[in-house]
């Protein structure tokens, strides 16, 4: 007879694992990645490869320096650093300055994630933090967007400025269809084609990795706040939500488990805050601020968690009787 295993109940567990979650996120990011490469070509591909490889590499190098065996690192590797790297690439503009995604990825993995204890221990979203480091350090390059080399459906081609920048500065608006497909829209690699992002979001919702309600709340709130800030001009609703990194951030970055409140109520608060902050900061700074909003909300998570604890089953009853 085989050896006896002894452990506390439950003796069966669901097939869910961190690695499966992360692989599902990678799959969900595929449509946006592919559309990014289609739109922006070789520089996009190179940026994505650089970011992913340097993220994964940074994690392995860090673990090896700590004296872990290569095999055990491989066994415990959960693809979360690959997700981080891919997201960093997708929220960067496509160009040949490959040192920028490299620096952003290494910073995100080493400083933001590994120094705090690895997967699950980071205080803020590593990808958002990585992007912000790159953005602050190389503002000119990070803000210099190229339009995709696919012709615009309606010929109001804009080069250099993103739809968000044009919306914020000169009030020109692209057609909703262009914004949805990302055709002719200058922007980050993965953020222009909203359809691809939404497909990824729907995939995640079907696999029950995320609850699609929360990103939708954030997007709706961001649109409404933009409407309010523009003197109740409902015409800005769609352009505001379809511009910049709002949708990408809501679906792939704000939903990051680690830096999310745990309760349903807490998540609602978190996503409302994300949507509102994005719109407010955009309005007053003139930059894309989805990452900043995520970072700020991340720092509030412990507080939100503390304030939104659920009451145990049967709690009300006990309170009544105590009176």
């Amino acid at each position: 007879m085989a050896e006896f295993k002894f452990s506390q109940s439950p003796h069966i567990k669901s097939g869910n694992s961190t690695r499966k979650v992360m692989i599902n996120v990678l799959i969900a990011l595929l449509p946006a990645t592919i559309m990014g490469i289609v739109y922006f070509g070789i520089p996009a591909l190179l940026t994505i490869l650089t970011a992913v490889i340097s993220s994964v590499g940074a994690e392995f190098v860090y673990e090896l320096i700590l004296g872990k065996k290569f095999k055990s690192i491989l066994k415990r590797f959960d693809f979360s650093s690959a997700v981080t790297g891919l997201i960093i690439a997708l929220i960067s503009p496509a160009n040949y300055h490959l040192y920028i995604p490299f620096i952003a990825s290494v910073f995100a993995i080493i400083v933001v994630k590994m120094l705090f204890g690895g997967t699950g221990k980071n205080l803020v979203n590593p990808a958002a933090a990585g992007r912000i480091v790159a953005f602050i350090s190389f503002t000119t390059i990070m803000n210099n967007f190229v339009a995709p080399n696919i012709a615009c459906i309606f010929d109001n081609v804009i080069t250099g400025a993103t739809s968000l920048q044009s919306l914020l500065f000169d009030g020109t608006r692209l057609s909703t269809l262009d914004l949805l497909l990302g055709t002719g829209v200058a922007g980050c690699i993965g953020e222009t084609c909203k359809i691809a992002i939404l497909v990824g979001g729907i995939y995640l919702a079907i696999r029950k990795i995320i609850n699609i309600i929360y990103p939708l709340i954030a997007i709706a709130i961001a649109g409404l706040v933009a409407v309010m800030l523009n003197g109740f001009d409902f015409g800005v609703f769609l352009p505001a939500i379809l511009s910049g990194g709002l949708i990408f951030g809501a679906i792939f970055m704000a939903t990051d488990y680690v830096t999310n409140p745990v309760s349903a109520l807490g998540k609602v608060v978190f996503f409302i805050g994300y949507g509102a902050l994005t719109s407010i900061l955009r309005h007053f700074t003139g930059y894309e601020t989805a990452s900043f909003a995520i970072l700020l909300m991340n720092l509030l998570v412990p507080l939100i968690d503390k304030c939104t604890l659920s009451k145990p089953f049967g709690y009300k009853k006990a309170k009544k009787e105590a009176k």
């Binding site: 869910n16 961190t18 415990r76 997967t119 699950g120 745990v262």
Partner: peptide, 11 residues
């Protein structure tokens, strides 16, 4: 492995 704070236990 490390808790990833997903909130599955809470829900």
């Amino acid at each position: 492995t490390n808790c990833i704070n997903c909130g599955k236990c809470v829900s």
